[in-house]
Amino acid sequence: MKPLARYAALHGYTELGRSLGLDTVELLHAVGLDPAGLRVQDRWVPAVAVADLLERSASASGREDFGLRLAERRRFGNLGPLGLIVREEPDVRSALRVITRHESMFNEAVRTRLTEQDGIATLRIALDLGEPVESRQAIELAVAVLHGLLRGFIGARWRPLEVRFTHPAPRNLRTHLRIFGPHVHFDQETNAIRTNTTDLDLPNDMSDPQLRAYARKLLPDPPYRTRRADTLDRVRELIEVMLPTGRCSVEQVARSLGADRRTVHRRLAAEGETFSSLLDATRAELAQHMVTNRTHTLTEIAELLAFSTPGNFSRWFRHRYGCSPTQWRDRVPQGQPDTRTNGDGRNTEDGQRRRTQPDLAEAAQR
C-alpha cells in the first residue's frame, strides 16, 4: 500500500490557494482528493496525491515558494496528539526523537533522521511517496515545517547553520532567505537542516514535568515501523564520509565510533543489517545520483566511490541496475530528474545526491 498522510498536512491550503487566485476545489478534484475532507484533519489520504496537489498549485499560481508559504500556516496542533506530547519533552533533542520515532502517526511518507558529529546536528528529510512524482513543494513544506518546530522550541531568533535542498534553486530566493536565513543551498546531496548540537540541549520552556509521563502514555508503538538505533545512522554517515578517502572499512568505522569491529557487527545485526549491505546500499544511492546528475565523469565517480578501476565500477553498476552507467545516463535527459527506482525498489528523489569534488574533500576531512 502506498504511504498515507493526514489531511492535516494541507492545513491552510484553501486559504492560501484562494489568496493566490486558485480554484482550490478544482485542483483537489484533479488529484482525487475530497475538498470537504479538509475539514477532517485526521482523515488519511495517499501522500502522493498531496505532493501532486502542491506541485499543481505552485504551477497554477506561478509561485515556486508555495510549499514554504503553506508551511508558515502550520502550528504544533497540526501534529495532532503527537503535538501535545512533543510540547512536554524536556529539551529539543528529546522532542526531535519523539517526532522522528512517531512521524508515521501523521505522515507515513516522511523520513527524518537526526545525526550528530563534531558539534553539528544534521536533520535529514526525505520522502517516500510510493511512486515517482515531482516532490519539490512537498520537500520544502516538510523542511520548513520542521524548521518552524525548531524555532518554536529554541526561539524566534534562532537560525540554522545551513539548510540544504537536493533540487535546483528557484528563480527568486526571497521567501527562502526570509524563512531560513542566509545559508540556504541547493543541488545538494540531501535535504537537511544543520545546527549546533548545543541547540538540542536547550530546555523546552513549554514542558511541564508533571504532564510529561502522562503525555507519553498517549503514544502508541509506531504502527508501521520503528526508528532504527543510532548506530545504524552513524555507520551510514561515516560510510558516506569515508568512501572518497579510500579508507572505508569496518575497522575504520569502528575506530571512529570508539568501538571494536565485533561490537559494530553485533549492533548492525540487531538492526537486520551487515556492514557490507550498508556499504553497498550507500554506495548504490550515491552512484545513482552522481550518474544521473552529470556533475562528474564516470571515471571520477568510480574514484569517489572507491572502485579500483572504472571497469569494476561499470560491472558493479550493471549488476545492480541492469544497465551500464552510460546507458543509465543516456536515458535521462540532461537537467531532468530521474524517476526510476534504486536497487532496493525505493523511488529516487528529484535531483538528489549531487556532490562536487570540494564537498567530498571537505566531508572526508571532518
Rank of each mutant, 00 (worst) to 15 (best):
N196R: 14
L211V: 11
T198S: 15
T245L: 07
E303T: 14
L268P: 01
W316Q: 05
V143P: 05
R228G: 11
L141A: 04
L27D: 03
L161N: 10
D359K: 09
M206D: 13
D187G: 12
L232K: 07
T195N: 02
S57N: 06
K217S: 11
P220W: 02
E15Q: 14
R329M: 09
A121I: 08
R329Y: 03
R157H: 11
F165I: 04
G67P: 03
R283M: 02
T166D: 08
D233T: 10
T245R: 12
V31C: 08
A254Y: 02
F186W: 10
L96C: 07
Q252A: 15
N342T: 12
R255S: 13
Y321H: 14
D280H: 10
L286T: 00
R340Y: 05
H265K: 12
D230M: 08
S256M: 11
I85Q: 09
N191M: 08
D233G: 15
D118N: 14
T341P: 03
R97T: 01
L200A: 10
R56L: 15
V253Q: 03
T292V: 11
R212A: 13
G17R: 08
V145L: 07
M290F: 06
A284H: 08
R136N: 09
L243Y: 01
C323S: 14
N191H: 13
L298K: 08
I125L: 14
T339V: 09
L360H: 06
L278F: 00
L177R: 15
A9Y: 02
M242F: 13
Q188S: 12
L16R: 06
T339Q: 13
D52F: 00
R355L: 14
H11L: 03
W44E: 10
R69E: 12
D52K: 13
I193C: 06
A302V: 04
V133T: 13
L16A: 09
E251M: 06
W44Q: 07
E237A: 15
G37E: 04
L79K: 05
E15V: 09
D344N: 12
A306C: 06
T348A: 11
D359H: 12
Q188T: 05
R39F: 04
E273I: 01
F76Q: 08
R159Q: 12
S277G: 12
G335I: 02
D118W: 05
